[in-house]
Write a protein that binds this DNA or RNA. Structure first.
Length: 328
DNA sequence: CTAGGATCCTGTCAGC
DNA sequence: TGCTGACAGGATCCTA
């Protein structure tokens, strides 16, 4: 399911094609997929020009300016070590982006960018893996279609309608219910294991009885980790997901931070991951689960470390995979 | 403060 | 073959 690495892979893909494009049409076939559609807010997208695409946790942010005549700055190249979003708002011809299209894919959302009559150009697509990534669009999972002046289109598909788009003023980003409560980014270069411990212990501090699995999934404590990377990170760190955050030693948090970073970076490099065929923003199949997953989706298969069967249990209301020998 | 469950929604799959 | 129920899990909301 789309987590931080999937969002980042999509962000990089879209950021390589969208900047400079002017929105010429918006088709909304599922009102609940666009927050504020009752007010026909989506009509405000018309005529806006894309500045850049950023990411915060699992959320994508498409920055837009209303003046379509402005010259768009060249998007910054992506650097593996720096995937930070919400940096200083980009300047376009001296004007800050004034609107932001927020996109959260939740569980089954996907974004597909298509250029008609250009079979040579690979379609950009990413998110939840389903045939809609490579099939004819729109289809029955298509919720929003954003058309651009050059004829290209961005499809927002979402089988289960949990994801959403939302248009807000750039100045209101700090007030957004979701964004304003998000925890720190684990891939921030200066994010230390002490920061990780402080974040996961939360408000209750050393008295917290929350399980480490629940804490990792809590976006207010740490941004971007979902079920797959929580399980994989804990395996790499050798930590039992049922342990409480307060029982973990400094060494555990050191190992955990390394595990989290390794998982996320490997997945981004592999083009993301999902339970089935994952197609990244360049139309390639993501390979994280195939190549690097040790426990997720491997119930009953041998632990790559000790050979004992991976077990699946329930922790924090989620399916949780672990090796009971290697994780203590 | 926390845990746990239900909720949103649809597609898939196991079992009968 | 076709039905039924369980399951998938991101985030929110409610109850205990």
């Amino acid at each position: 399911m789309p987590e931080l690495p999937e969002a980042e892979v999509i962000r990089r893909g879209l950021n390589s094609v969208l900047p400079g494009k002017v929105i010429s049409s918006v088709v909304l076939s599922e009102p609940r997929s666009f927050v504020g559609s009752d007010d026909e807010l989506h009509n405000d997208l018309m005529g806006l020009c894309v500045v850049c695409v950023e990411r915060r946790g699992k959320m994508l942010l498409v920055r837009l300016v209303s003046n379509e005549r402005v010259k768009v700055a060249t998007p910054k190249p992506c650097e593996a070590a720096s995937v930070t979003a919400l940096e200083a708002p980009p300047q376009v011809a001296g004007v800050e982006a004034d609107l932001v299209l927020l996109i959260h894919l939740r569980m089954t959302g996907q974004l597909v960018y298509r250029i008609p009559d250009q079979a040579d150009d690979p379609a950009l697509s990413g998110g939840y893996p389903s045939a809609s990534l490579i099939g004819e669009l729109p289809d029955k999972s298509t919720r929003v279609i954003i058309g651009f002046c050059d004829g290209s289109k961005l499809y927002f598909n979402d089988q289960r309608k949990f994801g959403y788009m939302k248009l807000i003023a750039a100045s209101s980003l700090v007030d957004d219910d979701f964004l304003s409560r998000l925890g720190p980014e684990p891939l921030e270069p200066d994010f230390t294991w002490q920061d990780l411990r402080t974040a996961l212990l939360g408000k209750a501090g050393k008295l917290s009885t929350t399980t480490i699995k629940a804490a990792l999934l809590d976006q207010e404590k740490l941004a971007g980790i979902g079920n797959i990377y929580a399980d994989e990170s804990l395996f790499r760190a050798g930590i039992d997901p049922r342990r409480s955050v307060s029982s973990l030693k400094p060494k555990d948090y050191q190992h955990l931070l390394v595990g989290i970073r390794e998982c996320l970076m490997q997945s981004i490099a592999a083009g993301g991951s999902t339970a089935r065929n994952y197609v990244d923003a360049l139309g390639l199949r993501g390979e994280f689960l195939d190549l690097h997953a040790a426990v997720y989706g491997r119930t009953g298969k041998p632990c790559p470390n000790c050979g004992r069967p991976i077990v699946k249990i329930r922790v924090a209301g989620r399916g949780t995979h672990l090796c009971e020998k290697c994780q203590r």
